[in-house]
Design a protein around this nucleic acid. Structure first.
Length: 413
DNA sequence: AAGCATCAGCAAGACGATGC
DNA sequence: GCATCGTCTTGCTGATGCTT
């Protein structure tokens, strides 16, 4: 069976662990009817991904699976050469391929790799190795041109990372003798040195005012939106990441995580990125929002220590919520706020509200605090950054501000 | 100090399960 | 019956620690 179009090779991690060709008749056919090195290299990918899935995070598995799969498909179908025989120039060719893949390798929607049909896993016809989508702010009547697909700098760099790590693994296992990807990365012509001034992804003070007013109005009208109001107020005022409000395998946020010290200052304990626990200062202004949301759930006053009710609760069913749905709650407020602001201030001023995502609230809150002159050190701690340098480059950009200031006074004559 | 390798989190569409 | 919510997906962004 000649392979002339890309097919998915690797299932999700749990399914890869007990992978058996009997369950994947199509793959079985492909590998038994092609040159033996196809199967050998499929197996290299398989043991590498198994190792990643076992020792790294689930996300890293998915990220690396994409790229190992694309790379092998390219070597099978396009290059027709085993990966242990590839050299730097071949890898540069692969980078060109990724930069502008053929249109029949590109899809326009998220799709599962495999579908179960008649008890067997079969390739999903709608799945493609590459994907192009319309940006959410331009969703309506947007025509997708697959020829316009270009990976971002991050995507390209992630591609090299995955292939480099893959080759390193193969070298350690004595399958390969060198790492052509490592050398190719330095010569890849698609990388541009980026020292641009980056726009901070935040709302202006007036856009934020619309978001807050809209959320209050929505909650006043229908108590089901009390939850939306609480979430956006918490994300903005306490600089939270969306995940820090979500139920996760090793952490469930509860009301008891709000606590008071000896001087009656309020704090919130959160479990952040890279398994770091931190306490965030809770301003007095925020307490009414907390009380209000609690009241809508029939909880009296402010949280007592060791209170173990869920922090943000589902309206149907029991327990905390995943980040996916919390993001949708934020999005629904943004959509309404955009509509309100567009009507009274015009499309131009409201535009950013269409692009905004939940994470912008963290940026908006921190940026507004910096403008009010709160010490950078304190904000950095509340954000949970390990170093103030991160806070400065992401939120303040003091170097750029100085440069803009000194450049502003140049004369033409 | 800058750059790189590593890897974790976030965004948002698709789709199906679930609770009321 | 249907809105709510979780899971899977790819693409994007942020953070950390090591090397140079």
């Amino acid at each position: 069976m000649l392979l002339n179009k890309p097919v998915p090779l690797y299932p999700p991690y749990v399914d890869l662990c007990d992978f058996d060709f009997d369950d994947y008749p199509e793959l079985d056919k492909i590998f038994s009817s092609n040159e033996p090195w196809w199967l050998e290299q499929f197996n290299w990918g398989k043991i590498f991904l198994t190792y990643i899935g076992r020792n790294k995070s689930a996300h890293t598995y998915e990220r690396f699976r994409n790229d190992v799969e694309r790379f092998l498909l390219w070597s099978f179908i396009e290059k027709k050469k085993p990966i242990d025989q590839l050299r730097k120039s071949d890898l540069l060719e692969y980078a060109d391929f990724c930069w502008q893949p053929p249109v029949d390798w590109i899809g326009t929607s998220n799709q599962e790799r495999f579908k179960i049909t008649n008890g067997y896993s079969a390739a999903n016809e709608l799945w493609f190795p590459y994907k192009i989508q319309a940006p959410k702010s331009l969703k309506a009547d947007y025509v997708i041109d697959k020829k316009k697909y270009r990976p971002s700098q991050q995507t390209l760099s992630s591609m090299f990372t995955a292939i480099i790590v893959f080759y390193n693994y193969l070298m350690a296992e004595d399958f390969c003798i060198g790492n052509p990807a490592q050398i190719a990365k330095k010569d890849c012509r698609h990388f541009i040195i980026d020292s641009q001034v980056k726009e901070i992804k935040r709302l202006t003070a007036s856009q934020w005012q619309y978001v807050l007013d809209t959320a209050v109005a929505m909650a006043d009208e229908n108590s089901m939106f009390e939850r939306n109001l609480f979430v956006i107020a918490a994300l903005k005022t306490l600089f939270l990441r969306i995940s820090e409000l979500s139920e996760r395998p090793n952490w469930s946020p509860t009301m008891g995580h709000f606590w008071q010290d000896d001087d009656e200052n309020w704090w919130l304990k959160v479990f952040g990125k890279s398994r770091k626990l931190r306490d965030i200062t809770v301003p007095i202004d925020f307490l009414p929002f907390l009380e209000r949301y609690r009241a809508s759930r029939g909880l009296l006053g402010l949280p007592s220590s060791n209170e173990n009710s869920i922090l943000v609760e589902k309206v149907r069913g029991q327990g905390g919520m995943t980040s996916r749905h919390l993001r949708r709650l934020v999005q629904s407020v943004f959509d309404q706020a955009h509509e309100n602001m567009r009507r009274s201030e015009g499309e131009n001023k409201a535009l950013k509200l269409k692009e905004a995502s939940a994470h912008w609230l963290r940026h908006t809150g921190a940026s507004m605090e910096i403008e009010r002159g709160r010490p950078l050190k304190d904000i950095s701690e509340d954000l949970g950054h390990a170093s103030m340098a991160t806070t400065d480059t992401v939120y303040v950009q003091s170097e750029n501000k100085k440069r803009a200031e000194s450049g502003k006074r140049r004369k033409v004559d």
